[in-house]
Simulated scan of single mutants.
Amino acid sequence: MNYEFDFTPVLSQWPLLLDGLLTTVQLTLLTTVAGIITGSLLAVTYTAGPRWARIVVKTYVEIIRNTPLLIQAYFLIFGFAAAGFRIPILIGAVIALTVNVAAYTTEIVRAGIESLHQSQLEAAECLGLTSLQTYVHVIIRPAVERVYPALTSQYVLLMLFSSIVSAVGVNELFGVANRIQSVTFRNFEVFVVLGVMYFSLSVLVRVLFNLIGLALFPRLRRLGTPL
């Protein structure tokens, strides 16, 4: 094997890599916020909503969890275009990723809600808390606290899965890397650099989630419970 490793042509494309990195971070940030909010609301609907709403949410969750993300992205992004709704490709990617991750978030948060003891709801009622206060302080917050490690892992996976939307034209990190390797013909070096960047992003996302968890859940901070 006479292959000579040369990372110079790849690293010289750092402006493109930086643009792709920023796009990946933007996708991850927007989708994380939208996915957590949407998934939490759907989880509440799934556990406490009217029967027809529970059926709708369950159907949505089953469809999303049993179809590939790439097909969902194609269907949503090009489906909008076919219906006459012209939206920026980045917004379309955020919508597709949010629709996907919200289904998994719904199941994770639902498991947290169902793990709560009925006595907690009875105590909230005895204290005279309103329905909104009960859902926010007695249901959602403790439920999210219990499943926070699972949510962290899910959103690290979201950041990694964002590479799939390069197939629909989004110039995120993986899409940019493909462009670079087609110009430099240094396939191995490109994907070594890409792997290092994704690994670094994964560590950063996990650290940020841990810091957010320590800020949101003082009990875990006091107990020193790992997130």
Score class of each variant (00 low, 15 high):
170 V>H: 10
9 P>V: 06
15 P>D: 04
143 A>P: 09
78 F>N: 01
57 V>I: 14
211 L>D: 05
9 P>K: 09
202 S>T: 14
68 P>G: 12
153 S>I: 11
181 Q>H: 06
213 G>E: 06
70 L>E: 10
136 V>I: 09
226 P>W: 01
33 V>S: 11
33 V>F: 15
159 M>I: 00
152 T>L: 13
86 R>A: 08
19 D>N: 12
107 E>H: 03
205 V>L: 14
219 R>V: 02
165 V>T: 01
215 A>H: 13
47 T>K: 11
162 S>H: 04
74 Y>A: 01
139 I>T: 13
57 V>Q: 03
97 L>C: 04
55 I>A: 08
131 S>N: 03
122 E>P: 11
207 V>E: 14
195 G>P: 08
218 P>N: 05
185 F>M: 11
101 V>R: 03
80 F>I: 00
148 Y>M: 05
108 I>C: 12
117 H>W: 12
137 H>P: 00
124 A>Y: 15
152 T>F: 04
77 I>A: 04
149 P>I: 10
84 G>Q: 12
140 I>D: 04
33 V>G: 09
52 W>L: 01
181 Q>A: 07
76 L>I: 15
84 G>I: 08
117 H>T: 14
199 F>R: 01
46 Y>E: 10
104 Y>H: 09
221 R>K: 07
169 G>I: 09
203 V>P: 02
97 L>K: 06
48 A>Q: 10
14 W>I: 13
176 V>M: 12
103 A>Y: 12
82 A>E: 06
66 N>C: 02
37 I>T: 13
104 Y>G: 05
45 T>Y: 00
